[in-house]
Design a protein around this nucleic acid. Sequence first.
DNA 1: TCGTGAGTTTACCAAATGGTAAAAAAGCGG
DNA 2: CCGCTTTTTTACCATTTGGTAAACTCACGA
Lengths: 205, 205
Amino acid sequence: MNDAQPKPRSRIQQENRRRILDAALDMFSQHGYRGTTLDQIAEAAGLSKPNILYYFGGKEEIHVTLLNNLMRTWLAPLERLAPEGEPLEELLGYIRRKLQMSRDFPRESRLFANEILQGAPRMGPHLESGLRPLFDAKCRLIADWVAAGRIAPVDPGHLIVSIWATTQHYADFEAQLAVLMPERDALWRGAEAHLEAMFAKLLTP
Amino acid sequence: MNDAQPKPRSRIQQENRRRILDAALDMFSQHGYRGTTLDQIAEAAGLSKPNILYYFGGKEEIHVTLLNNLMRTWLAPLERLAPEGEPLEELLGYIRRKLQMSRDFPRESRLFANEILQGAPRMGPHLESGLRPLFDAKCRLIADWVAAGRIAPVDPGHLIVSIWATTQHYADFEAQLAVLMPERDALWRGAEAHLEAMFAKLLTP
DNA sequence: TCGTGAGTTTACCAAATGGTAAAAAAGCGG
DNA sequence: CCGCTTTTTTACCATTTGGTAAACTCACGA
């Protein structure tokens, strides 16, 4: 229904679009949508403002593009939660992947958090069409595991929400954690150990 | 060093300041600092913009006032975590109080989340001077409980962080949860049951 | 090497925004 | 009811911001 056009982008187009999106991700994730100006993005990208508007239709189009890109990488870890493996290992693996994403892609995590915090004004449909089916499917998978007695009884939905909450928190609230637990390396190691232990204990039948 | 002045505010001053702060809390928690305009606050408060600037020195002063007020109510639940009681009951009580705050004061939770997400530009000092000592003290308390074998071994810092993450998530990511778990009443009941069960299992020796 | 289209810059603009000055209106103690 | 203070409104302003028009430069294939 929309831009599934080919996209025969020249070398320079690709490079400049990438720079703009990278700069915009920096800004939007730190200052939110309205807190970010085109001039900031332009300066961070090393381009002039009109030049940026040559590559994107406007501020909102940049933001939406980022959100669309985000959705894919964001769903990936959950998609890999598969019925074939050992349930406990599958879930702990998911937790590990999710925590890794918080550490390696904190900007993406904050962009998402900002968008949701503000009521998901530009993402509502995506949640409904992209996230929800996946969430429901994985809830069913977990419910099956519970029914089969392969993991301890647990509300699948709230389990997934707990995993999101705990893992994303380390990216989204980094500014707070930097004050409370200043040793960065120890923080991530401690986080992984704690979350694995916590969810293992919760899920072991 | 600053406004610890008496504050002999007239009836009308108190009322109007309250209305402004309430309206500003609505706006700031939903749109962030830069995403909120004085005109929005004015309209929501039912006052004219210059009138608002009669009560507050400027936009930033309103925001800082809200943040200061927030700090007090925000620390209260953790302060009540006391060494006298049964450790497990104390911690579960804390979790219950924290979740209740997410349900009853989602605006405050989101205001806080917004501020931290953006790097705590107007709250950094408060975290250091207000939150950190409390956090450290409660970590020591929990460590003592662990050392005494009264709760299962757990990293106190990460335990507290997990409690924050899971409880606040229900307020901060409400827009997302509204899509995934539309039945509002069931959501809060399920959240309480799930979190109590999860942390009880984690902490029971 | 020259023409042409892709890419970039300069010079703007209208609207929005935080904030101010000063006059007007309300309150209110006497 | 008066006079003085508090509160509110009207009329502005300078800056910022998203965006545009059009001129200009550059790459590159014929």
